[in-house]
């Protein structure tokens, strides 16, 4: 098992958002978590990535045989967990290329490998750039500064390609994208799909799943996974809206 979430409860500012989540993900699988606004989707992503304002009050998360919750934010990343941000942060004065190079080399250090020299890094970068159709000029700019919404999301997937995570959590990667940008981003993600890597897609809408076919779909509502199924569940949600789930659950 790559990731095993057992009965996770999490609070922010004393308010319980996650109320007992259970989820197992194996290598090679793509899981989609869907749910209405405020159901706890992004909280789940944040808890897994280690965002410090969330307090886990109960439950365990095992990631590649390690207790994930014991690891620092950076160690989670270096162990192979990647979070594509819903709102990628703009960081003035720090060049995107230098940042990604630092991140790649931190990961290599963690794995006991030598850092990449400038040439080797450049070569890998060129390869991965093609994957998400991202331009060199964008990468020489400060991190996400003045990037359009689509450029920010492509930059996230580009970083995923560079860091080659074991588990990628994509938090609302489709939000704010027009149809062309969505196609490019989804295409990049599909190329990064392989049998050693797991992907957790977090999305409000079905439309991302038209491009990326998940193996499993889970519906998160009020801090719990209330329904799990195949791709067909996403289509059912699209057709009937979240109401049919919420009504069922609230009964």
């Amino acid at each position: 098992m790559m990731l095993s979430i057992k009965n996770i409860h999490a609070n922010i500012d004393g308010k319980e958002i996650l109320k007992g989540i259970n989820l197992d993900i194996k290598a090679g699988e793509v899981h989609a978590i869907m749910g209405p606004n405020g159901s706890g989707k992004s909280t789940l992503a944040s808890v897994l990535a280690g965002r410090e304002e969330y307090e886990v009050t109960e439950g365990t998360v095992t990631f590649l045989d390690q207790n994930l919750l014991d690891l620092s934010i950076e160690d989670r990343a270096r162990a192979g967990l990647f979070l594509a941000f819903q709102y990628p942060v703009e960081i003035p004065g720090v060049s995107t290329t230098n940042f990604i190079k630092a991140a790649v080399n931190e990961k290599r250090k963690y794995q006991g490998k030598e850092p990449l020299d400038a040439l080797a890094f450049l070569k890998i970068m060129k390869e991965k750039m093609a994957l998400v159709e991202i331009d060199q000029s964008l990468l020489s700019r400060s991190i996400n500064e003045g990037f359009s919404g689509g450029e920010k999301k492509r930059n996230e997937i580009f970083q995923m390609a560079m860091l080659e995570p074991k588990l990628a959590i994509l938090d609302e990667t489709d939000s704010g994208l027009d149809i062309d940008a969505l196609r490019i981003v989804a295409n990049g993600i599909n190329q990064l799909r392989n049998q050693n890597r797991a992907i957790l897609l977090i999305t409000h809408y079905q439309r991302l799943l038209d491009y990326i076919q998940p193996d499993f779909v889970h519906v998160l509502y009020n801090g719990r996974i209330v329904k799990s199924g195949s791709k067909a569940l996403a289509l059912e949600l699209e057709e009937k809206g979240y109401d049919f789930i919420t009504e069922e659950t609230d009964l």
Binding site: G50, E74, I91, G93, F99, E106, K107, Y110
Partner: peptide, 22 residues
């Protein structure tokens, strides 16, 4: 958080941000 979530250690992330500020 963004920098650390990419595997950059706390101290180094601070340094990067401060150098970015300067």
């Amino acid at each position: 958080f963004y920098l650390r979530a990419r595997g950059i250690p706390l101290k180094e992330a601070e340094s990067l941000l401060l150098r970015g500020f300067a």
